[in-house]
């Protein structure tokens, strides 16, 4: 399905029009929008289903927290932040600010 995005601004003639020179920005905008969604939103599974062996479990839990938004983090905090049977998460990965991790994802990608 084609993704549309457009920028609309009311011109002095009081008629809304698509702003010229927008197409070049479009790709970048949709990349940012995509990152925001894929990393910060969507359904989440909490439980033992997700990689449950030793250090890999840490990776899963850590990964989710590293890339998560404050919003998602709140959900984790309000529920059980540490699924049953999992080991405590290293605080190192908890302290990465969400913004920074999203930026890093972009830089490394």
């Amino acid at each position: 399905m084609e993704l549309t995005s457009a920028r609309v601004q009311c011109r002095p003639a009081h008629r809304a029009s698509v702003r010229p020179g927008y197409a070049s920005r479009q790709r970048r905008v949709s990349l940012c929008e995509t990152l925001d969604r894929v990393l910060n939103k969507g359904a989440v599974i909490a439980g033992d289903i997700v990689i449950s062996v030793g250090d890999v479990e840490l990776l899963y839990v850590g990964l989710n927290l590293v890339v998560t938004s404050v919003e998602t983090m709140r959900n984790w905090a309000s529920g059980d932040p540490c699924p049953s049977g999992s080991k405590p998460v290293e605080t190192k990965s908890l302290t990465v600010p969400p913004e920074e991790s999203a930026v890093r994802a972009r830089m490394e990608g």
């Binding site: 894929v38 990393l39 969507g42 997700v50």
Partner: peptide
């Protein structure tokens, strides 16, 4: 589709 957040791997 109800999209999943990135990073879910089941064993």
């Amino acid at each position: 589709i109800v999209p999943m957040s990135f990073g879910h791997v089941a064993k």
